[in-house]
Amino acid sequence: MSYAIVGFGKIGQALAQAFARKNLDVTVASRRPPEELAPQTRAIGPTVVAKSLEKALEADTIILAVPFGEHREIAKALPSWDGKTIIDTMNSFPIPPEELDGLPSSAFAAKSFPGASLVKGFNHLPAAALATDPVVDGGHRVVFLSSDDEDAIAPVADLAKQLGFAPVKLGKLNEGGWLVHARGRTWGPLIFQDLFKKQQ
C-alpha cells in the first residue's frame, strides 16, 4: 500500500510527521514545486519525499489535506479515480451549507472523485495535536472515521493504528459523519474532542 499527502500546510505537515515517527514511506505534494518542499520534508524525516502532484497521485491512498475549496482542482488531475482511496481531512467551515447541496462536506467532495472510495478522517483535531505522539500514558489518541464505503474504512483504520492512533468508526457520512463535520458556522459535537483510548 502506498500513501501520499496532497497539501502541505499545517495538517499535511502534521500527518507527514506521524508517518516519519513510524518510519512509514509517504509522498507529499502541494501547489508548490517539489524542490521547494524538499527542505521541509528532509527536516521531517527520510521516509517523507516531496514529488509532483502527478507522481503523488500514483499512490493507492491519497490523504487530501488542502483547503476545502481546492478539492475540485485536485480532482481534475486524474482522468480516473477508480481503485483509489481518499482520506478526507478537510473541513468546509465557513462555507454556507446551501453551497454543499445539503450534504455533509465529505459526501459533497466525493462527487468530484468518481470511482474513488472516500473516508472522512483526521479532520477533527487541530494540527498541533496531530503532530504530537498519539500515544500518551498508554492511551492512543482517537481519530474518527466515516465512509459510505464500508470496505474502505478497514484499511484506513489499519493505517491509523500503524501511526499510533485509535480509530473509531462512526458509520456512513450522513450518519455519524455529521458528528465530525464543520459546516456553515457550526461545529459537529466531536470536533476538537481530544480523546484517548486504551488499545485492546
Rank of each mutant, 00 (worst) to 15 (best):
V6L: 04
G7M: 04
F8G: 01
K10L: 11
I11R: 11
G12K: 07
G12F: 09
Q13F: 15
A14F: 05
L15I: 07
A16Y: 12
A18Y: 14
R21C: 15
N23D: 15
L24D: 06
D25Y: 14
V26M: 14
T27Y: 12
V28G: 03
A29T: 12
E35F: 14
E35G: 13
E36V: 07
L37N: 14
A38K: 15
P39H: 00
P39Y: 13
P39Q: 03
R42I: 01
R42M: 13
A43N: 15
A43D: 13
A43Q: 06
G45V: 03
P46T: 09
T47F: 14
V48L: 14
V49R: 12
A50N: 13
K51H: 10
L53R: 06
A56I: 10
L57Y: 03
L57V: 05
L57K: 02
E58K: 07
A59G: 11
T61E: 03
I63T: 00
V66T: 01
P67V: 08
G69C: 10
R72C: 12
E73T: 04
A77M: 01
L78D: 06
L78M: 11
S80A: 01
T85G: 09
I86T: 07
I86H: 01
I86V: 07
I86G: 07
N91R: 05
N91E: 03
S92D: 01
P96S: 08
P97F: 06
P97M: 02
E99S: 10
G102Q: 08
S105R: 05
S106D: 07
S106E: 06
A107I: 02
F108H: 03
A109R: 06
A110K: 01
K111Q: 11
P114N: 02
S117T: 06
K120A: 10
G121D: 10
F122A: 07
N123G: 01
H124G: 08
P126H: 10
A128R: 10
A129C: 04
L130D: 04
L130G: 00
A131E: 05
V136D: 14
G139T: 12
R141G: 06
R141C: 11
V142L: 04
V142S: 05
F144N: 04
S146L: 00
S146C: 12
D149L: 04
A157Q: 05
A157Y: 12
D158Y: 08
A160C: 02
Q162G: 10
G164D: 13
A166F: 14
P167S: 09
P167F: 03
P167R: 11
K169T: 13
K169S: 15
L170H: 10
L170N: 01
G171A: 00
K172I: 04
E175A: 09
E175P: 02
G176A: 01
G176S: 00
G177L: 09
G177E: 05
W178D: 09
A182W: 02
A182V: 00
A182R: 14
R183W: 00
G184R: 05
G184Y: 06
W187N: 10
G188V: 01
G188S: 02
P189V: 01
I191K: 11
I191P: 15
Q193T: 05
L195E: 02
K197G: 13
K198V: 04
Q200R: 14
